[in-house]
Amino acid sequence: MIIQALAFYLFAAVMVAAAAMVISARNPVHSVLFLILAFFNAAGLFVLMGAEFLAMILVVVYVGAVAVLFLFVVMMLDVDFAALRQGFLRYLPVGGAIGLILLAELVLVVGAWVASPEAAVGPIVPIPDPARVTNTHALGRILYTRYVFVFQGAGLVLLVAMIGAIVLTLRERVGVRRQVVADQIRRTRAESVELVDAPKRGGV
């Protein structure tokens, strides 16, 4: 158990440190790299909790795809940080006040935390025994039965996002000659090669 505890503190400490670096790093690319580190450690925490499927999906989706695009954008944008920080002091009081209010609210909420007896209804779907059912199976079973409606709904949300991105950004350029593979393959020798007898000193 000691090893698990050590691993937990390692992942948790690195994750918190990386998260702090995300917002304090001077270079935005470094921020994104620290964000990736934080994701990765979150995946480690999932593994420790026995949620190996979520851990892997977190790495595949967030680290492997989403963060790559983030990194792309940040690298290409070349954000001017000096300009971004100009208004920092001016907005500090307002931002700080909002932060303090939120903090106070959170403290109030957490301070008043009493698990009400009625709240102990437990999960709606019983959690299967992890020794017999892997959590991939368990997730699949409720995702495609009880939650299939919202699962498909989430799919529609993504579809709309895709349509939106295309509608708002795609500009058809006129006069672009595209490669048509079928045409290239269909071309026969007879169409494209002509044998001519060139007269001496005459040219074709």
Binding site: E52, F53, M56, I57, V59, V60, V63, G64, A65, T134, N135, T136
Partner: peptide
Amino acid sequence: INVGILYLFAISSL
């Protein structure tokens, strides 16, 4: 591990 193929996929995506 239970999710071996996902592990490989995740590592290769990194």
